[in-house]
Write a protein that binds this DNA or RNA. Structure first.
Length: 202
DNA sequence: CCGGGGATTATCT
DNA sequence: GATAATCCCCGGC
């Protein structure tokens, strides 16, 4: 298992990066507790021109400031006051491209994830959906703006391989307000994986 | 100190 | 697939 290098994040095509993040491993190390999972669902948010992005037209506030950080930075957004959503910032500093991690397949530290989410046993809901991912990994806005190369959240790759046939794409979830941009095929997922949100693939 | 936002989730039918 | 619950944080007054 190798750390994803900074060059992975620094590229300019955030949609490609979102697709390539499928199968990679997220590790969180918080208060001495390590949990990890493989990414099975992601969404790309494109800088400036994407109506679904928090940074549409360069909107920049204290809330989304970390989207403008250099690549390989975490951006954790609090939605509905309760859900901690993990994003990976890509591209150059001041260009707010980001990838939302929507679902993981748990790998290690499952007992800690269960404890954090108050669940009694592992089921598909543990890390399905971005709110559940943040909760299971123990994230909060304290972990936003950290380096993904040396902070408490890091991404790794291993021997896991995906073929084109195993990768599905669709419009993004929950962004209907974005008009025509809500139809862009910027969501990627591993076909048939039970941790992917939405209805099961048939 | 109040008010609104908001990239969701769970729980029905 | 529709709908209700939910609630913290930040910004503005």
């Amino acid at each position: 298992m190798k750390l994803l290098p900074g060059s992975f994040y620094q590229r300019t095509d955030v949609v490609t990066i979102a697709k390539e993040l499928l199968g990679k491993i997220v590790v969180s190390e918080i208060n001495g507790i390590t949990t990890s999972g493989r990414i099975v669902e992601s969404e790309a948010y494109v800088a400036f021109i994407d109506k679904a992005s928090h940074a549409f037209e360069g909107r920049r506030t204290l809330k989304n400031e970390h989207m403008y950080a250099a690549s390989a930075t975490s951006y954790i957004y609090i939605c509905y006051g309760i859900h901690q959503m993990l994003n990976v910032v890509t591209n150059e500093k001041d260009i707010p491209d980001a990838v939302l991690i929507r679902a993981l397949e748990p790998m290690s530290g499952i007992e800690h994830m269960l404890q954090r989410t108050g669940k009694l046993q592992l089921d598909h809901s543990l890390t399905r959906g971005p709110g559940n991912v943040g909760k299971a990994l123990g994230l909060s806005k304290l972990h936003s703006g950290q380096s993904l190369l040396e902070g408490s959240i890091r991404l790794y790759r291993d021997q896991f391989k995906l073929t084109e046939e195993q990768i599905g794409s669709s419009k993004r979830i929950g962004v209907d307000y974005a008009g025509e941009d809500s139809l862009l095929p910027y969501r990627f997922y591993i076909k048939g994986n039970p941790f992917v949100s939405g209805k099961p693939v048939r």
